[in-house]
Amino acid sequence: MAEQRIDVKKTYKMYIGGDFPRSESGRTYKAFDSDGNLLANACQGSRKDFRDAVKIARGAFGGWSSRSAYNRGQILYRIAEMMEDRRDQFMRELGPIGFKAAEAEADINAAIDRLIYYAGWTDKYQQVFGSINPVASSHFNFSMLEPTGVVAAFAPEKSPLLGLVSVIAPIIAGGNTCVILASEEFPLPSISFAEVLNSSDVPEGVVNILTGSREELAEHFSTHMDVNAMCYTDDLPKGMKKMIDENASLNVKRIIKRPVKDWYSEEAQTPYFVTDFQETKTTWHPVGY
């Protein structure tokens, strides 16, 4: 009986609004291991999938941004807990795409630690980066940070787990919602990370993960008027960079470029990744003397 059993393979789908849908276009592409063997089919997300994801991220923004900072921290911590629980799954998925056992373990450890790092920052960046400002009139003047809104991002191409987590964590720690395009070459660990998110008290729609082609989606990521910021960390082709910059001017989208070479290094985690997606609001409050 045992030797006749047929493996049940996982279908890797996208993560939109807390669901795992296929692309509305019905398209897929092949994901290979480092030896060129077929691992699985991944969904090739379309502009309409992106549009749907943005709509859902916008809908989730109000609720997520008004959670208390402490609660957002708890939820980030919960993601780390769930990831800890799924180490084996990630080990199995990182192995075939070129991670040696020790490297894969280091990648998973660093990803979990990164979540804890930003979980800690959720209720601290306000104190550190907000300010009370001296003014020459009878006003109490203070500046506070508020989340930018819906953030679209390209996850790093060569770091499908640690890189992805390092991009998502600071965005949501600051109360934003996001639509992320996973690594095109290695999409599978990113979708497994979506399963972690889905079981971690992260409200649906706060993180949405698409798989597909940057070349195809860059235009829509950068032109969508309801996207308030866009972020990428890889060195993009020159033409694509220029197009993104130009398109961003349509609604004065924030374009955040963070060229991180080494996701294990100190430059890969900083509270400035949180403040990249924050707007400063300054209040003049009249006071009498």
């Binding site: 549009r51 032109t223 008027m225 309801d226 609604n251």
Partner: peptide, 9 residues
């Protein structure tokens, strides 16, 4: 315009 819109505008 060919661009997806936002209620903000």
């Amino acid at each position: 315009t060919g661009h997806y819109q936002s209620l903000d505008y």
